[in-house]
Design a protein around this nucleic acid. Structure first.
Length: 269
DNA sequence: ATGACTTACAGGGTAAGA
């Protein structure tokens, strides 16, 4: 089972890129961020024709998240992150697919910092940490996947020089990520590739794609129930090189089949 | 380097992203 996360950076303007990727890589589940589309403008029909059912939370102009599943309907368990009823930004959706609870998230960027946007990022992160504790403790296999807008360590960026003031590298942002992992989550990409420079985002400026000047900010975190099923992880870099590409590339894991229900113990014999 | 690119919304020039 292949599950991917992909910040599409505008699902309407990049629908062709999305469909080409789905057709070629055929992920079983795709978590999308930055739809930049209101609910009514989500291209559900085109995705259904490509074999994917979807659940989404849209918003005009910015944000927006979705979970696509090939051939099955995602069973939504939550729209929006708990903890702040006044938060109107569409950054979280959670659904079960094939017995796995999947939280798809788009963590606030937080720039410029310091400032209210950075405060919002850290507050949102604390709400995520609180909800993640509940998910970690649940008896279900759980995956948290999305654009976390955090470069976890200096090994996860080509060079820190021009990013030292950026919200993605701040000690507070990294401390939140470390606090989350300390609950027992497995960072799939780093676990499978402990000694490799891996990036998931290359900005549009300064020929950063052409020079492989990237950042690792899209993450897939497995709870203790799910982690034993991790088989492989990677980045579909070819997508970033396509015409009209998002500035992120799809990032994925492969899980073994597992069991949808506990096997009944056979007695006697 | 309030930079550079790119998109949404709107129908020009901001706002936002990372």
């Amino acid at each position: 089972m292949k599950i991917a996360t992909y910040n599409i950076n505008g699902i309407r303007s990049r629908l062709g890129n999305l469909l080409a990727w789905l057709e070629r890589e055929r992920p079983d589940v795709a978590c999308l961020q930055e739809l930049k589309a209101p609910d009514a403008m989500f291209p559900a029909k085109a995705l259904a024709e490509a074999g994917y059912e979807a659940a989404w939370v849209g918003q005009s102009a910015w944000n927006g998240v979705a979970i696509l599943a090939r051939g099955v309907r995602p069973v939504v368990s939550r729209r929006g992150l708990p903890g702040d009823a006044a938060d109107v930004q569409s950054r979280y959706i959670e659904a079960a697919v094939d017995g796995i609870v999947i939280g798809c998230l788009y963590l606030p960027n937080g720039n410029p910092q310091p400032g209210p946007k950075f405060d919002y990022k850290l507050a949102w992160f604390e709400r995520l940490i609180a909800h993640a504790a509940v998910l970690q403790a649940s008896r279900h296999p759980v995956l948290l996947a999305g654009d976390f807008n955090v470069v976890p360590t200096d090994f996860d960026i080509y060079n820190t020089r021009s990013w030292l003031k950026d919200a993605l590298l701040q000690p507070q942002s990294r401390a939140c990520y470390a606090k989350l992992l300390a609950q027992g989550w497995t960072d799939a990409l780093r676990t499978i590739h402990p000694d490799e420079r891996i990036y998931t985002f290359w900005d549009y400026f300064r020929r950063h794609w052409e020079t492989n000047s990237g950042l690792r900010i899209d993450h897939l975190l497995l709870n203790k129930r799910l982690a034993p099923r991790l088989v492989d992880a990677g980045v579909d870099r070819w997508v970033r090189g396509e015409k009209g590409a998002s500035d992120h590339a799809p990032t994925w894991i492969v899980l073994d089949a597992g069991r949808s229900r506990p096997r009944r113990r056979t007695s006697g014999a």
